[in-house]
């Protein structure tokens, strides 16, 4: 694949990102990053083990189903949405490591949560590293949707998957510990974090020996607020929830995909590391639950803090 070394060569020319942040006013940072990303289309991928064997590959789909080519198309499509619609703004991106595995943990909101593509897009264009999104199995079952989801970096949230991705391959993965409880909650419950599952994400990070990096996202709640749910229809369709959103009420059928242009603000919190030996089969459940709860509380506090600072839903 000739595109990868090309990208590496380009990235070495770009200035040191930490200095870059100092020189440029914050409001223009995002716009410049997006332009930079559009120039350098492909994210540098890690070296493959069997790259030495002379085998003819016709696509760049990796062992997880992610295709860097499809991902670059998705980035091109999503870039204007990211830049002009949501006007995404990051804070503390330097806390995400440039190499090695880390488990990103974020709050999840909006009927069709825009936080997942925003986090994946943002980190890929800003840091030039691939991000894998872990989500419910439900996507895999749906024809076309499941395939597309895998090609743009989605994979089922299974502990084994996370472990292999983080520990063996040193990649970045983003999980939403609230699961479907996050996006399915109604607008009345906005910015109130749901239960963080059974703390599985902490256990995975402990076993893989990687830090957990929480990301607080503000604005996703207002982009597609759930007014009420249709549980009977959801049961009949076999899906976790069927929301009736404000977007549908305002825009009609168009509202199924059209978001309100709320401003997305993302704040990366300090990485949480655990002083336990990695690679164990089991970890103390009380310790796991305690850590998960403390991450949840910290994320919740940061969300409230960011909401206190926010003057306007649409302009931040």
């Amino acid at each position: 694949m000739p595109a990868v070394p090309e990208r590496r060569a380009r990235s070495s020319e770009t200035p040191d990102p930490t200095r870059y942040h100092d020189r440029v006013p914050a409001s223009r940072q995002v716009a410049q990053h997006v332009e930079r990303a559009a120039r350098a289309a492909l994210v540098a991928l890690p070296h493959l083990k069997d790259a030495a064997t002379p085998t003819a590959r016709l696509s760049d789909v990796d062992e997880w189903g992610r295709s860097e080519h499809m991902r670059s198309i998705a980035r091109r499509v999503f870039a204007p949405v990211y830049k002009h619609w949501f006007r995404a703004e990051w804070e503390g991106l330097e806390k995400i490591p440039k190499t090695g595995g880390a488990l990103l943990v974020a709050n999840h909101a909006g009927a069709l949560p825009p936080d997942a593509p925003t986090i994946m897009h943002g980190i890929e264009v800003e840091l030039g590293r691939p991000v894998y999104g872990m989500a419910d199995y439900i996507f895999r079952r749906v024809p076309w949707v499941g395939t597309m989801w895998a090609r743009v970096g989605g994979l089922p949230a299974h502990p084994d998957n996370a472990l292999r991705l983080l520990k063996d391959q040193g990649q970045l993965a983003v999980v939403f510990p609230e699961g479907t409880k996050g996006p399915s909650k109604t607008y009345a419950d906005r910015y109130r974090l749901r239960r963080f599952g059974r703390g599985g994400f902490v256990e995975i990070a402990m076993r893989a020996g990687v830090p957990v990096i929480p990301i607080a996202v503000v604005g996703a709640e207002e982009s597609m607020p759930v007014i009420f749910r249709l549980p009977t229809l959801a049961r009949a369709l076999g899906v976790p929830y069927v929301p009736v959103t404000a977007n549908v009420l305002v825009f009609g059928p168009l509202g199924l995909l059209l978001y309100f242009p709320s401003k997305l603000k993302l704040r990366v919190l300090d990485p949480v590391t655990f002083d336990v030996p990695p690679g164990q089969e089991r970890y103390s459940k009380s310790r796991v639950m305690e850590e998960a709860e403390s991450i949840r509380l910290h994320l919740q506090e940061s969300l409230y803090e960011m909401l206190r600072e926010r003057r306007n839903v649409f302009f931040g």
Binding site: Y137, R141, D160, R164
Partner: peptide
């Protein structure tokens, strides 16, 4: 199946 992990280990 759709609920499978991406990689099966021997004990999965």
């Amino acid at each position: 199946a759709s609920t499978d992990p991406t990689w099966f280990r021997e004990e999965t």
